[in-house]
């Protein structure tokens, strides 16, 4: 599903250069739940940006769902993000002036799904995260946990092959964070491929496969077969 091969991301700032990713190879199969763990500055965010097609590597190849995206232009990357990826962000990143269902519809809107079908798919996604009754509310009228559910619904709405979660529990209190994590696990059991980025080891412990990044290289890659 995700195949990173010898990925380098080098930022050069005049004389000095920063190797944010210093040769990373990673292979994620369909249906896996992977946590990418690292401290701040480890390169995990850069890694996430590249997996999320928000950025392109300086060198190396990246195949997502069988297609090579490492040399794509911005417009093509936009289509890949739209059709193959669902994002869940730490800050939820809902658009405040759109109501819940309009937010969930956004990726479908950019995909060109007709209005009636869009509404139906969005409602189904909201139903899955259990807040279909809040569809007409504005994001600011919801609690943090509910907002994160909306953003998960948004990621699910287009049924993308990969869900990418960037510190999804980072802005939540431990109880709601727990709920969100349980929900992600449930999505995994339902067969979704999930990549979760975190710096929190206690979260990482609950995830079947943990990839640790430090100084731009993968230092360990462990699987807990029992839970899979």
């Amino acid at each position: 599903m995700i195949r990173l091969t010898d990925i380098y991301k080098i930022y050069s700032d005049g004389d000095s250069e920063i190797r944010a990713l210093d040769g990373i190879s990673l292979h994620v199969e369909k249906g896996e739940f992977v946590a990418i763990v690292g401290s701040s500055g480890s390169g995990k965010s850069t890694c996430m940006n590249i997996i999320g097609c928000l950025d392109v590597p300086t060198s190396g190849t990246y195949q997502l769902d069988g297609i090579d995206v490492s040399t794509m232009h911005e417009k093509e990357l936009a289509h890949v993000r739209n059709q193959r990826l669902g994002f869940v962000f730490q800050q939820y990143n809902l658009i405040p002036k759109l109501n819940v269902i309009e937010n969930v519809e956004l990726p479908l809107l950019y995909r060109g799904v007709p209005s009636a079908e869009r509404r139906k798919m969005a409602l189904e996604a909201l139903d899955r995260v259990g807040i279909a009754d809040r569809a007409k509310k504005l994001p600011t009228q919801l609690s943090g946990g509910q907002q994160q559910r909306v953003s998960i619904a948004r990621a699910l709405a287009g049924q993308p092959p990969v869900i990418l979660a960037d510190e999804p529990t980072g802005a939540l209190d431990s109880k709601t964070g727990r709920e969100v994590l349980e929900f992600m696990k449930q999505l995994h059991r339902e067969g979704n491929t999930i990549v979760l980025i975190t710096h929190d080891n206690s979260i990482a412990e609950e995830i079947p496969r943990v990839v640790r990044i430090h100084d731009g290289i993968i230092t360990s890659d462990t699987r807990k077969e029992a839970e899979a």
Partner: peptide
């Protein structure tokens, strides 16, 4: 700016 970032992450092309 942030809204634009969100829209782009969800698949809005520069043209959109």
């Amino acid at each position: 700016t942030r809204e634009i970032g969100i829209r782009k992450s969800l698949g809005a092309t520069p043209w959109d």
